[in-house]
Amino acid sequence: MMDAHGHAIVTRGLNLWYGPFQALIDVTAGIPHGLITSLIGPSGCGKTTLLRCFNRVNERFAYVRTTGAIELLGKNIYDPDVSLIELRKAVGMVFQRPNPLPISVYENVVFGLRIHSRRASLKRADLDAAVEQALTEVGLWKDLKDRLQVRATTLQLEQQQKLCIARLLPLKPEIILMDEPCSTLDVDGTRGIEELMFALKGRYTIVIVTHNMAQARRTSDECIFMLLGKVIEHTRTADLFLSPKSPRTAEYIEGRYG
């Protein structure tokens, strides 16, 4: 799912307000298809807000107002005929704190299938296969295949976060959004998630918000630097860290502020 320039997501003149506060100012950017793009910037710069626009999950709060356009395959997701349910099927989200639902591992993985298909069309064998495939893909199958019925909230944090990624996969998303997915994990957990991101790259377009500049540098192909609601610089990650064009980017990646 990409446009002529190889973009999976294109935002055009995107503005967003939380009540009277404008959190995104005229954001225009193209997220490349099949690659990992990181959003970096100091706290409050709007990077998480931008991420949450891509599957419109920030509209849970009534005081959010948006103008501008976000196109997925040339289709503006703010058009009135867009189904939020279909959009969120195609654009999965991983949150900062692992948030598996308080049900079994198995039910977490098939949750998406259950809510998006009629009961009669779900066969036990298909669900089993979906669970095995999703858990294999995130590297949890070996550890959890005998513990599919345990409550997901009792797993280790890293396993929980991987499970949160696994439960997106049966819905065959185009894009996976990750909001600081490693901020509650230790070094090993972070490595686990990053390796998983590399494994998923190519098949899925991944957008990751991170506070950790080293992580952005390690994992992403393109990098978007934001400041006070605006996109300051958007280029290949290697270029952004080696020869930033804007002095504000340079100062941020040197750690002068933020």
Binding site: R60, R88, G92, F95, R97, P100, G112, I115, R167
Partner: peptide, 13 residues
């Protein structure tokens, strides 16, 4: 609230 958010982000009504 993270449970509601998780389910909503998966497209639950």
């Amino acid at each position: 609230d993270s449970y509601r958010e998780a389910a909503q982000a998966l497209g639950a009504t």
